[in-house]
Design a protein around this nucleic acid. Structure first.
Lengths: 220, 220
DNA sequence: TCTTATTTTTAGGTAAGACTAAAATGCTAA
DNA sequence: TTAGCATTTTAGTCTTACCTAAAAATAAGA
């Protein structure tokens, strides 16, 4: 049973909103995520329920099924592999890749994805630091913490951002932060939570608590 | 003004059937090419006429306009660049690329195509030997002739096939011929037009006139 | 030229995926 | 426990792209 592009997009949205399938999701939430109207979502939920990728009880929101989770992860895998391709091979900036990957992820060809994966050397993370599921939908997540949770003198590496809006990504680029950057916490201001961060052992960066909370790192 | 995927496919079909815009095309021909019904084609022709990419006179078939030609060539350019990518970078066989390229050609991103072109080193021909239009729609064609038109002792290089059906491509692969192969005509049998061809200075190949007529080469 | 055969178009219908407006359901606070 | 509000669903349209069947236009042969 195959899914249309629209169905794949709904399923992906439900997967994300449900936190990887751990909680149920309301019609309105899906509508907001997909930027469509609740009435359209109701229609689609009935269809996805029929296809058994979600469990749908009218008026009570949806839960994603195991099959649905698998499908969503396939789409996410394709999206993230294309992002790696765009950044590593075609020199896209990491704030330019999302829209194009959103189209590319719907190309139907298992062979294509297999070959792309191999061509990119089986990457485990996309340019935003998000993990790439393997072809069975397994994800090997790294423990991460937000920068504002790190203590003074701790070192690590930026691996992801929470808010990956173009605006925030642009801001990071401008101040010289990026996924993969090696960082060290030089100082934390008690009363407002703002921080002083050493980037790549040379540049010093000041950031508000809000910004720090949006940046995820692994410790080292 | 943008075209939908279906509209792009119709336009491409009309471009091909009209021999690059040199003759007009009938509704039935388009229906056969697209594998749809004449009634659906009539609908679409009206729409494409409104968008001024074709000139449509009811009951008299269509002619592609300059704007339409430009659009069709853009799509062909994208298709062929993706084919090069699939064969050169992802190790696809040349009889496996068509379907996937058919999907990839509809991805909307001028930047993507520009970067892909550059990444592939601005190829001028696709894996089937067909020329890749530049971003303005210009094509630099090489003079080619069918193998059966070549004389004994003439040398050249296979650059394309007329019938690029999977069956024919598979057959060529099996006998050891391919786009790019250096060839020399060793013998031509008068009464049935069959030929003996030396491939890559080592392998000798017998082929019927029909097969030879399907293989295009440049002389050297 | 007129009748027939072929091609093409129109008319009317379907399915997907969106929409608006209205009805139904569930939740909460009095 | 029920009135009112928020959420969700249903009903009815719209557009795109397809379909079949029937009508109209063109082309061809006697």
């Amino acid at each position: 049973m195959t899914l249309t592009t629209a169905e794949e997009n709904y399923l992906k949205a439900i997967y994300h909103l449900s936190n990887g399938g751990t909680k149920s999701v309301s019609t309105n939430d899906v509508a907001a995520e997909i930027k469509t109207k609740a009435a359209s979502v109701s229609d689609m939920l009935r269809k996805l329920g029929d296809k058994e990728v979600i469990e749908y009880r009218k008026y009570y929101g949806v839960n994603i099924t195991e099959e649905g989770k698998k499908r969503a992860l396939q789409t996410i895998r394709k999206h993230r592999l294309w992002e790696v391709f765009l950044v590593e091979k075609l020199q896209f900036a990491w704030d330019e890749v999302h829209e194009v990957a959103e189209e590319l992820e719907h190309i139907q060809s298992p062979l294509l994805i297999q070959r792309l994966d191999s061509y990119l050397n089986f990457p485990k993370f996309d340019p935003h630091g998000d993990p790439i599921p393997d072809e069975y939908g397994d994800v090997r997540a790294r423990p991460r913490l937000a920068l504002n949770e790190m203590d003074i003198d701790q070192s690590g590496q930026i691996v992801a951002v929470k808010d990956s809006s173009a605006a925030f990504l642009k801001y990071l680029d401008k101040v010289g932060a990026y996924i993969g950057a090696r960082i060290k916490v030089l100082d934390k201001v008690e009363f407002d939570g703002s921080m002083e961060i050493l980037v790549d052992q040379k540049k010093t960066l000041f950031m508000s608590k809000d910004v720090a909370a949006n940046i995820l790192a692994i410790q080292s």
